[in-house]
Design a binder for these strands. Structure first.
Lengths: 343, 343
DNA sequence: CTGAAAGCGCTAACAC
DNA sequence: GTGTTAGCGCTTTCAG
């Protein structure tokens, strides 16, 4: 910038005024402005965001911390967040927290990331207490999405997991299912909420849930498949399965298929999230749709408003409602205890 | 930092020396160091990366521009890149280029992103000429992945698309398939390469490809499904289908299923990429596996070396080989022109 | 071994 | 309208 100042024969401040589009100040000499713009272009001038930041300017960056970007649900969430952030003039810095092992690093990454204006945390970080602690300690506006729980002091945007589970269970029940199993991911955040909602609603209806009908899994298709294999091998297999995420459900669908079970004739399956692939599962997966876009918008707005306005929204809870998407994977229960082998 | 200097009763420079772990200089008074460290901790000191950056320090940030994060393949790629980047001590800034409409913005984002040490471009940006131009104009180390083509002046890491297509076609041919259709994404980069490889290899074998057997698609399951629907409705439907990506193939599988075609009995399907879901498609998808991890490592190393060492690797082409993953979606051709309706 | 001072690129008072 | 000056937080000569 100094170069362009000398080259244009004006002072640096004038250049700054022109190039940074200072609104408030006095008007700039029409010809001077043109000359400066000209020289700037000729010299291929690029403002240095670091220097701007140092002066206290907003970086227009939103930090996003996501547990696992390979989870299609979170990929969609990142997409939604990115889209709305951009609409608000912000860009996104992605910090991946993959696995708890990297906790310390993820954390560091966040701290180093001080040069963004606000932070969004996607997904349950319940097992990374240091992260949470650190977020709380820092003065940076933070909002947590899909955390499953309220974190005092941090604005959170969640789905109503209980309503979702109730929707799913009601749907299954309306078909006459009583032996319903659960494939559940790590008991944290959203998943934990879904799991306990499942248990209460089953109890509420007087439906018993044998221990073997609640099978734990990591949130990957392979794990969902393994869980389904276990279920299908039981002496008293369920007639319906609720998976806490679509990824798990899709893995389960595959395992059922391999075992020769035809969904939904022999077994009903219902997922949670409505990831893009869900509609293309075989059969198309009935699932609970997450209002991803709305949640992303809400969260970004919260973060941006906090960053710009500085008003401490504190921890007003934002809980949005999921909806039931009926597709092809649910039907009435088979008659026998297990299906006749078809091959 | 000034505060901590006064609080510790030393000068700012001493504090800096201690806190930044200056290697070269003289040793620091043992007691002084401890005192400073102590005060720093007590005051909750956090270095300001912006100020460091201003002084010319590396930001340890890798910019990653990806066309579409919702594409499971690129999600996996981002994961791989992030992992290796972190191993090298770098964090990742994600810039999403979704859709060409945002070209200008994506571009800006990159330029603003000058505060990262190098840039990785994932996926074909052939339709964003301004982006490419800009990358070339800037002095920032850049490496392009899955660009499908060489870009003079930018280091590129690609797969051998032709080898991949040949692998797929050989596999299909070995089962006796001759009427092979192609579901192809946007004719850009990798996809373009795969498409033309398909055409040449078919020609090479003397196999004709009716125009109706090459169906264009956007890279989404829905589009793959639509394409498959078209294929299946043909009066001379193919006995095998090659999709340029697994996402397309999975969509196609679904459409075939809905049409009552049983894969692989009535139709063989083969994909490209080997995304995590591919193994859990129904039936499990035979596909061409991308060496994602290796490519990510190569690219990150290239970028980092360039950023740190400054040696201009220029545009040495890096082309890695894909492999065939045989699963369940390919069998010998059905006998009739079309399958008997099964329902 | 430690302090003083300059400067990275830019902006914002405050003059003229 | 335009120039001067100070300083954001940090590192780094250059002197003590």
């Amino acid at each position: 910038m100094r170069d362009i100042a000398t080259a244009a024969g004006v002072s640096q401040s004038t250049v700054s005024r022109v190039l940074s589009g200072s609104v408030s100040n006095v008007s700039i000499g029409a010809e001077t402005r043109v000359r400066i713009l000209d020289v700037a272009a000729r010299l291929g001038y690029r403002p240095n965001p670091l220097a701007r930041g140092l002066r206290g300017a907003a970086t227009m960056l939103l930090g996003v911390i996501v547990r696992d970007i390979m989870d299609p649900f979170f990929a969609a969430a990142v997409e939604a967040v990115t889209t709305h952030a951009r609409r608000r003039g912000y860009n996104v810095v992605l910090g991946q927290a993959h696995g708890r092992a990297d906790e310390a690093i993820a954390l560091r990454s966040v701290l180093e990331t001080r040069h963004c204006d606000a932070i969004l945390v996607l997904g349950d970080m319940g097992d990374q207490p240091r992260l949470i602690e650190d977020l709380l300690a820092s003065p940076m506006p933070t909002v947590a999405l899909w955390q499953g729980i309220q974190i005092p002091g941090i604005a959170t945007v969640n789905v109503d997991n209980e309503a979702g589970v109730r929707l799913a269970l009601d749907h299954l029940a309306s078909y006459g299912h009583e032996r319903i199993a659960l494939i559940a991911g790590r008991p944290l955040g959203d998943i934990q909420a879904r799991r306990s909602a499942f248990m209460s609603f089953m109890a509420e209806r007087g439906l018993s849930v044998p221990e073997s009908h609640v099978v734990p899994a990591r949130n990957q298709a392979a794990s969902g498949a393994a869980a389904m294999r276990a279920l299908v091998d039981l002496s008293d297999p369920p007639t319906a399965v609720l998976a806490t995420t679509d990824v798990l459900a899709i893995g389960g669908l595959h395992a059922a298929y391999e075992a020769g079970w035809v969904v939904p004739r022999d077994l009903s399956v219902i997922g949670f999230d409505d990831i893009p692939m869900a509609a293309f599962a075989i059969p198309a997966l009935t699932t609970i749709r997450m209002p991803v876009t709305d949640m992303a918008i809400r969260a970004v707005d919260l973060a941006v408003d906090q960053a710009e306005g500085g008003f401490a929204d504190g921890s007003a809870p934002h809980v949005l409602a999921p909806t039931l998407i009926v597709r092809q994977s649910v039907a009435k229960p088979r008659s026998g205890s297990r299906p006749e082998p078809i091959r």
